[in-house]
Amino acid sequence: MGALALLLAGLAIWLIWTGRLQRMTAKDGMALGAALVGAVLAAKGKPVIGAPLLIGAAFFFVKQGNAKSRPGKRPAVPPRADEVARARALLGVAPDADAKAIRAAHRRLIASVHPDKGGTEALAAQINAARDLLLADQKQR
């Protein structure tokens, strides 16, 4: 059980190091914490308390993996015309712009307003959302 505790601690360190922990939800973090506490308790000679925590966390992650692999239940909703028009105005592209032109306009605009260059995260998020919306709209045509 001590090896399992070290393995889980190594997993947590790897998740932090690679930046994957930033994309985890609060539930994922709590399940990872429960698994670590369960492994430590089991390693310290209290498997009656530690084992349920480990098993519960394992079931949680298996359930999460299965839920992410299933296709979404809701069909894709086509973007509204006014949303598409606002996105085109924000990126400054013509109504007949292709995917290459949309991506080029996005790159040009995001380079000047990126948070690393002194811009705001909110504006960068709007520009990214506009690009995604226009590309999705183009795929539906």
Rank of each mutant, 00 (worst) to 15 (best):
M1V: 03
M1D: 08
G2Q: 15
L8N: 11
A9S: 15
A9P: 07
A9W: 03
L11I: 05
A12D: 12
I16Q: 15
I16M: 09
I16P: 01
W17V: 13
Q22E: 10
R23N: 14
M24I: 01
T25C: 07
A26E: 11
K27M: 10
K27G: 11
D28G: 13
A31Y: 11
L32K: 09
L32A: 14
G33F: 10
A35E: 11
A35R: 06
A35P: 03
G38Y: 08
L41F: 10
K44E: 14
P47Q: 13
V48N: 12
I49T: 10
L53F: 11
L54F: 06
L54P: 04
I55F: 14
G56E: 05
A57H: 12
A57K: 12
A57V: 02
F60A: 06
K63I: 01
Q64N: 06
G65N: 07
G65P: 05
K68V: 07
K68T: 07
K68H: 13
S69A: 13
R70V: 05
P71V: 06
P71E: 12
R74A: 14
R74W: 00
P75V: 02
A76C: 02
P79H: 11
R80P: 05
R80T: 04
A81K: 12
E83Q: 12
R86A: 10
R86Y: 00
R86C: 01
R88Y: 00
A89C: 07
L91G: 06
L91W: 00
G92I: 00
G92D: 04
G92C: 05
G92W: 02
V93S: 13
P95G: 09
D96I: 01
D96G: 11
A97N: 06
D98E: 08
D98M: 04
D98C: 08
A99G: 12
R103K: 14
H106G: 11
R107Y: 06
R107P: 01
L109H: 08
I110D: 05
I110T: 04
A111W: 00
S112H: 05
V113C: 10
V113W: 02
H114T: 10
H114R: 07
P115V: 02
P115C: 08
D116E: 13
K117H: 12
K117E: 12
K117Y: 03
G118Y: 00
G118H: 05
G119D: 06
T120M: 11
T120E: 11
T120A: 12
E121A: 14
A124D: 04
A129H: 01
L133H: 04
A136S: 13
Q138A: 15
K139Q: 09
K139G: 03
K139F: 03
Q140N: 08
